[in-house]
Design a protein around this nucleic acid. Structure first.
Lengths: 202, 202
DNA sequence: CAAGATATCTGTACAGCGCTTAGATGTGAA
DNA sequence: TTCACATCTAAGCGCTGTACAGATATCTTG
């Protein structure tokens, strides 16, 4: 494992240990998976003692929250990019969402583990202009949803998100491989399933 | 915690420890949540030594698999019941699915944790006549899907399942409370979101 | 019924975990 | 310069999953 970046004998005070810990956690997560992500391992990876993280995070959950926060941020920007590239079709957003989950499986899991613990939407997804949630809602409006029918709009956004999250967790199943082969690829499979959700038509 | 059922000093050989362990696990899961479900706690609850479970399960994951297996079985039967009671509407199945997840949150989580580990559908959900998967597929046929269009049918079933799973994980969010109030209840909220998924119309 | 093979369970131990506490070390303000 | 404060280390607690050797009960075979 990469032991931080430099070989010089780190000064007693790290300088920016908080960020270093979050980075180390992401590195470990990617390399070893979520089950290997112990606080102690993160501290080792960052080159500090096992107790050091407690001066920056209340407990392990709070460190994972910080990792998840970065994850939501990345997801938001990737979906915004997908929207601009794809001409703004809802299916494109759905595929971008699922692809993010596939490309960062461990991170995606940490993101939703945190969310399940709190039983609440992460702040990064709430009524923040840059959130993927709002991106989806705006896209629905562009495709004809009535912006005045707030409840309707909110329900539709939730439905789309539920479908995308479900697909993100399911589409990796081995049992679906034959469908991907049949349809000519992963993306085609995703688009087909999303298409069957109604909301994602077109 | 209830220390098994009887006060008599259990014979050296338990008789049916395997099932006793699975039951103990379910009891703990319900009472204390998934984070409290350690192998050692399960052994304590069943009144045996920490090493005893290893004669019946390869490791902790295999015990959780057994718990998950029971969970899938329960889910299948509850959905079959919902179908017979509800006149066979797809929305009823979706609501039954989500309600199961809400009534057994810890169990539902164990079920999907196992699934994520394996990246495969649980056996109990595959092409077994009693599976909820087949129940949904048959319901789609009853509502007009062409049984000969196998790919189409499979995609639609997957889409429905993805939507239901997503909703099961999302619908507990505090942020959606105002929608439940507005719509007159939890079930109405669920039905409304499912309705927006297209597949679940009627 | 005797005897040994086998299945099941216990006791003990190890390394790793999250977290706490006490004390060491560096930093910045008075 | 001094002292308060932020940051880090070292040591340790109780927990975990798991391995292994040995105890105990049951089953099989004679």
């Amino acid at each position: 494992m990469s032991q931080a970046k430099s070989a010089e004998p780190r000064p007693y005070h790290h300088g920016d240990l908080r960020n270093a810990l979050v980075d180390a956690a992401r590195r470990l997560l990617e390399a070893e998976g979520p089950s290997a992500l112990s606080l102690r391992a993160v501290a080792r990876e960052a080159g500090v003692s096992p107790a050091a993280p407690y001066h920056h995070f209340k407990d392990k959950a709070e460190l994972l929250d910080a990792v998840a926060h970065e994850g939501w941020h990345t997801l938001n920007t990737q979906m915004a990019q997908a929207k601009s590239e794809d001409g703004g079709a809802l299916t494109g957003l759905g595929i971008a969402y699922v692809c993010f989950a596939h490309e960062n499986p461990a991170l995606y899991r940490v993101m939703y583990d945190a969310v399940r613990e709190k039983e609440a939407l992460p702040e990064d997804m709430q009524d923040n202009k840059d959130s993927a949630y709002c991106l989806v809602r705006d896209t629905l409006i562009e495709h004809g949803a009535d912006p005045a029918a707030e409840t309707h709009l909110e329900l539709a956004t939730i439905a789309a998100w539920c479908g995308a999250h479900g697909l993100a967790e399911m589409s990796g199943f081995k049992q679906f491989q034959h469908l991907k082969d049949e349809l000519g690829g992963e993306r085609e499979f995703l688009a087909a399933v999303l298409g069957h959700m109604g909301l994602f038509t077109k």
